[in-house]
Design a protein around this nucleic acid. Structure first.
Lengths: 349, 349
DNA sequence: CCCTGTGTGACTTATTATGTCCCGCTTGTG
DNA sequence: CACAAGCGGGACATAATAAGTCACACAGGG
């Protein structure tokens, strides 16, 4: 909601001093913040499950949980634990401080320096190693989106597991009304749960917004393609897509994506021969950010992206660093939402 | 050195949040800050003596001291403990935060509202109850002075135990050079250790500055007075006093001051009949801030005060609240340096 | 209907914090 | 020069607290 940017500099000296006067302060704060974060992410959740995924003994988690309950930060029922509004507020207030403390702020600065991006948001963890980090990226993405959405915005979203996480974390917000979600591009050969259509619908529902879908079969002959475009219903949605103010998309590893999708052998050849490393909304890019292949479907085209108000790319995990780097070479002015694992890998080079 | 004013608002939410995530944080920080403060005040000092005056058990103080030593905030020798430069820096950085935490900031704001003063500085404690608070006021006064001193400044100081504390806490500062200290007024009947001359000299020595004294017998006939004024040496100093840029003075309870000084019976009558409650540099004021008596001596006069660049009044202890209030009625634009005890008493009314 | 996951209580053990006493040293003073 | 006051630091018993472990009652979903 509120932008705390730039505030970090002010409170740095205080934190440093506090660290001297109470060295475990950060450690404890971090622990409790982490627990709270996990609970928010997985609520409702039980102690044992949580202690497992968080990696601390159950007994100590229990003490912490009891403490958090006493502070009215979490509520605790027979179904498990959940974060209270107080806890939500605390998490939000502390987000920037923790970023500063964990050095994520530095990472963001470095990313902005080495990549031609407009802004970078880095969340803690590595989604290759911990699946919940994806959700955290999702949350960060939602926050980022809400900061930039205005009334009657049109948001185009793509598919992929990362975007699914974004959809999952989407919440309704009274401030924005009448936001319209549309899938960015037609069928790309994904499985249902990762299709842009599915994610678009889910996101819109969670955001209490409207949505339109693009019902396009995965593989079309050229003739069918041409006639489909002329279809009124399709044409209308395409019109909306072209006039969207925001695009939210993932970035994938080229080979992984190609394998996951129903990619024909000849296309596979093309992708491999072109040394593709990155994939985004149906386009495959080589290390230099050049397009080596493009899945033929309707919807937003690479050139359109440049004219969209806000472009948000969400991708994390150290394994995706190469892909992010390659894609970003040709996509300036994007906002990159990633995780610590990918960010550190990117900075390392 | 650095003015942190206004920064308090920024870090308030962080502190509140930290309080939720680590409720004893403030308690512990306060304890350690207090210990450090005491050590700075009384250095070099031993554990036992300190534990006595600070009011905590020796063993626990010992643990704290060990901790502070490990953090390189105090150095520890056979002579006792002393604050290191690191510790000094920490104390300075934390000063404003602690003020905020202890509510002293609020007191300062309230004082500025109810009194016609330019600024207020409140230190923790009550000098009626704890003698060391006077030293803390002294330190605050010194800081305040240094912030406002420019090169070749002339500072006029009065006598009194409070001003003695200021002199004691004075330190040399490379930034200011060629500061000249002068006594504000001639003999007022004080004992030697509280005389303006004594304090002036002490302060100048500690500040590595220069000083001039005003050798005026306490009681003079009118003729002697007139001839003394014409004396070249005296005339010169008087000239300096009149052109001073800063006046630092105490405020006393009228009766207490009158009794302490060699006050003649008829003067005593005058003071009592006039219902004097406050005293400052030889002037006695009633509740309304009207002058009811004036010790006849040379030096700065009440009217001169109004034309001096910076006027700093130092007075603390709940018992002096009435005096402060009365004096301030006729002395606008002063900077008041006081303690919690006096401030709370002033606000209470 | 059972079975898995939930919170809670109780108990033992390890770790830490605190109180108490004493010792040898430096340092300032008579 | 010598003495004593005050200094830090070591040692140890004990109280307080944190942490590990297990057992139990209960609610909800397949």
């Amino acid at each position: 909601m509120i932008l705390y940017k730039g505030k970090g500099k002010e409170l740095r000296p205080l934190i440093d001093v506090q660290k001297k006067l109470l060295p475990d302060l950060l450690e404890i704060m971090q622990k409790r913040y982490r627990i709270l974060q996990y609970i928010r992410l997985m609520q409702p959740i039980g102690r044992r499950t949580l202690s497992g995924s968080i990696g601390i003994s159950e007994r100590i988690l229990r003490a912490e949980v009891q403490f958090l309950k006493e502070q009215n930060l979490i509520s605790i029922s027979s179904a498990g634990m959940a974060v209270t509004p107080d806890g939500e507020e605390l998490l939000q207030t502390l987000e920037d401080v923790m970023k500063e403390v964990l050095g994520l702020k530095d990472l963001e600065m470095q990313l902005k320096r080495i990549l031609p991006i407009e802004d970078a948001i880095v969340v803690a963890g590595d989604s290759d190693l911990s699946p919940w980090v994806k959700k955290e990226m999702g949350r960060a993405c939602v926050t980022c989106m809400k900061e930039r959405l205005t009334n009657n915005s049109i948001v185009a979203v793509t598919g992929g597991t990362t975007l699914a996480a974004v959809a999952e974390m989407m919440t309704a917000d009274l401030k924005q009304s009448d936001v319209l979600f549309v899938p960015a591009r037609g069928g790309l050969g994904e499985h249902v749960e990762n299709q842009a259509n599915t994610i678009c619908a889910k996101m819109a529902e969670k955001a209490m917004g409207n949505y339109r879908l693009l019902h396009v079969p995965d593989y079309l002959s050229n003739e069918a393609y041409q006639s489909l475009i002329e279809e009124t219903a399709v044409k209308e949605v395409l019109q909306l897509i072209k006039s969207s103010n925001m695009v939210v998309h993932g970035i994938g590893d080229a080979i992984t994506m190609a394998e996951r999708r129903k990619t024909s052998e000849e296309e596979m050849e093309k992708i491999k021969d072109g040394h593709a490393v990155a994939e985004a909304f149906g386009y495959y890019f080589n290390q230099e950010g050049e397009v080596v292949h493009k899945v033929q479907t309707i919807g937003i085209q690479l050139e359109d992206i440049k004219h969209v108000g806000h472009v948000i790319a969400v991708a994390g995990g150290a394994s995706k660093a190469k892909a992010i780097k390659a894609y970003m070479k040709q996509a300036p002015r994007s906002i990159l939402i990633t995780d610590e694992g990918a960010a550190r890998a990117l900075v390392r080079e």
